[in-house]
Design a binder for these strands. Structure first.
Lengths: 341, 341
DNA sequence: CTGAAAGCGCTAACAC
DNA sequence: GTGTTAGCGCTTTCAG
C-alpha cells in the first residue's frame, strides 16, 4: 500500500532519489541509507505495474508450449523459470495445447502485458509473429522454428537423429520399421518422418511403404490408435520409430495389451519416457536435452532483453549423455539403470 | 502501439466511450460500431498494464508449487491454466522448489504485480501470508493448507488415505511395512506418516519400529537413498509405503537395482506414476485427482475474484477412479492396463 | 448516455 | 548529485 511518495516523505528526499536507490543508481550514501530504512519501516513493495507502464516493458517472460504435461516441455519450462527467476523475471505460462488459435490469443495477451520477451515452440509452421516482431519483442524459438522469421532458435537435430534412430532399429535386426509421427505442418513431426524415410530409403533402395508412414496428434491417444491401425495391416511392421515420447507411451500401451513386448518387438522412442525408463522394459530411448534447451533459450533471451542485438543464433543442441558418435543416449533402459546405480 | 486515444479520435468519440465499449458497458449502438471499426483498423490491442495500474488488480493468477516436474503438480497447473484462460486470466508460474525463501520472494512479486489471486501449495507449515491477506488478495491452498490462516483449500484425505493404503499392504500379507515420507513440517508428509502409524498401531498394537519411519526430501534421490538405508537395516522391511510418487520412483530404482521386484516386495505409491503405470510392474498405486484439484481450486479462486465473500471452504477431494470404499484406485498397473484396453 | 479530466505509481528528462 | 514534473494508457467518478 505504501508508495514511493510515502518512502520519499519519510526519508525526507524526492521520489526521484527513492527511485534511484531502488534501481541501483549512484546516490549519496546517507540518503541511500535513509531511503532503505524508510522503505523497510513502511514494508514498501515497489509496484511493478507502474514501472512497466512507464518503462513499456515488464519483468515477465512469456513461455508458449503445446503441452505442459509432456515431460519434455515440463522440464524445459522449469529450466526457463529458474533461469528467469535468477535474473529477476517471472514466467507467464501459456499452454497452447498445440492450437494456433490459442497461441494467437496468448500472443495478444503477451503484447498487452508488455512482456519482456517470448520463448515459444510454435504450434504450427503457419505461425504469425508479425505483431510481436513489430513491437521489437525479443523472441527465441525452442524445439521448433518459426518459418519466415529469422529468430534465435534452440532445437535438436531431428532429421539426423531420426535417421540414426531408425538405423539403430535396423542394426537390431528389424526389417519392417514403421514411423508414427506428429501432425503435418508441425516442424519436428515433419523432420523426424523425413529422417526415418532417409534411413529406410538408404537401406531398401526404395521409399517406405506408405502404410508405415503414419501421422497423428502428438499424444498418448494418438500413439495408441496409430499402433492399433499398424497391427491391423495385412503385413504389420515388426518395429516402430516413435517420433516423440507421448506417441511412444501410447503405442506401448497398444503393444503390451496385445502381448507384444519389446525388445522382441522393436520400439524406439525419440524423447525420454522419464519414469518408464526406470523399469526393465526393452524400449530404446533417445534422450533429448530438454532442460538444457530451456536453459540455453532463457540465456539467449535474457541477452536480447538486456540489449544484445546481433544476428539470429540457430542453436542445434548436442545430446548430453553421449555413448556413440551421434551424441545420443541410446542405452536400453535396463542397461542405463545398471550403469547409474 | 495504438492507444485508446487513437481509437477515440478515429471513431469521433471520447476515450471514456471507447473504454465502455471495450468493457461491455451499455453504449449507443452506432457509436459502439464506430469504436469497434476504428479499433480493428488500428490493430488496437488494449494495454493491460495501464488497466491494472488503474484498477489495482491484474488478469494474472499466481500459481505456486514446490515442483513443476512432479506430474502431480504438472497436471494441477495445466488444469488451473486452462480454467484461468477460459475466464480471461493467465497464470504466473512460481516453482518454489519447496524452499520457503523462494516462496517469499515470489509472494512479493505477486503482490508487486497486483495479481488477481493466488493458488498455492505452501512450501512449509510456517508460511507467512500476512502481506497477501492484508492486501485482500484471494487465496486458495492446494494439496496443503496454510496453518494459522482460514483460507479456501482443496486437498486429499492424507491420514485416512495413508492408513487404508498401509492396510492394503497388510492385507496383501506384508508384515514389516516401512514408510518413506517427505520432510517434516510439510503437511502432506506429516499426515501420511501419521496415517501409516495408525495402521501399524492398529494391527500390531504397538508403535512402528522407529527405523521404519523415514523422512527425506520429496524427490527421486530421496526415495533412492531412503530405500538403500532401509535395506541396510539388520531387519529390513518387506514392504514400503511411499508417501508420494517421486519417492516411489526413487525407492523402486534402488529396489530393482538390488533385484527386488514388486509384487514380491511390497510397494504402494501414494500418488500416480503416470508413465510407469502402463508397464507390467506389480506396484500398488493410489490415484490422486491432481487435475480435478486444479480445476476446483481455479473455480473457487475465480469465484473469490469475482466477488464471492463467504467463509472459507475446505474441500477434501474424493478420488476419481473408485474401486473400493475408500474411493481410491488401487488396481495394480497390470490389471488397470487390462481393464482399460 | 456521453464527455472531461483526474489520477493509479513509477521513471526519466530536464533543470538546478 | 538531487529535485520537479510530465507523462505511460487506462478507468471512473462527476457533470452535463
Amino acid at each position: 500500500m505504501a508508495t514511493i511518495y510515502d518512502v520519499a516523505n519519510r526519508a525526507g528526499v524526492s521520489t526521484a532519489t527513492v527511485s534511484r536507490v531502488l534501481n541501483g543508481v549512484e546516490v549519496n550514501a546517507s540518503m541511500k541509507e535513509a531511503v532503505l530504512k524508510a522503505a523497510g519501516a513502511l514494508h514498501y513493495v515497489p509496484n511493478r505495474t507502474a514501472r512497466t507502464l512507464r518503462r513499456k516493458t515488464s519483468e515477465i517472460i512469456a513461455m508458449m508450449i503445446p503441452d505442459l504435461e509432456n515431460p519434455f516441455f515440463t522440464s524445459m519450462t522449469k529450466a526457463v523459470a529458474e533461469r528467469a527467476r535468477a535474473s529477476g523475471y517471472t514466467v507467464m505460462l501459456c499452454d497452447t495445447d498445440g492450437r494456433p488459435d490459442r497461441e494467437a490469443e496468448y500472443l495478444k495477451v503477451a503484447v498487452s502485458e508488455s512482456v519482456a520477451g517470448l520463448i515459444i515452440a510454435p504450434a504450427s509452421d503457419a505461425i504469425n509473429l508479425d505483431e510481436v516482431i513489430e513491437r521489437g519483442l525479443p523472441v527465441v524459438c525452442i524445439d521448433r522454428t518459426a518459418p519466415g522469421y529469422d529468430l534465435d532458435s534452440v532445437v535438436v537435430d531431428n532429421v539426423g537423429g531420426a535417421r540414426r534412430s531408425t538405423e539403430l532399429l535396423q542394426q537390431a535386426g528389424f526389417r519392417h520399421i514403421a514411423c508414427i509421427s506428429g501432425p503435418e505442418h508441425v516442424e519436428t513431426a515433419d523432420q523426424r518422418t523425413a529422417g526415418w524415410r532417409e534411413a529406410i530409403f538408404a537401406a531398401a533402395g526404395a521409399a517406405p511403404d506408405p502404410d508405415y508412414d503414419v501421422r497423428t496428434s502428438y499424444s498418448v491417444a494418438g500413439g495408441e490408435s496409430a499402433m492399433a491401425a499398424l497391427l491391423d495391416l495385412p503385413n504389420p511392421p515388426d518395429a516402430v520409430f516413435a517420433a516423440n515420447n507421448t506417441l511412444a507411451v501410447g503405442l506401448l500401451r497398444t503393444l503390451l495389451a496385445q502381448g507384444l513386448m519389446p525388445p522382441a518387438y522393436g520400439v524406439l522412442a525419440f524423447g525420454d519416457l522419464p519414469l518408464l525408463t526406470y523399469t526393465p522394459l526393452g524400449v530404446m530411448v533417445v534422450h533429448l536435452p530438454s532442460r538444457e534447451i530451456g536453459e540455453v533459450a532463457a540465456d539467449r533471451l535474457l541477452e536480447r532483453i538486456t540489449g544484445f542485438d546481433g544476428p539470429a543464433r540457430h542453436i542445434v543442441m548436442p545430446n548430453i549423455v553421449t555413448d556413440d558418435q551421434s551424441g545420443m543416449d541410446l542405452l536400453r533402459p535396463a542397461e542405463r539403470l545398471a550403469n547409474s546405480s
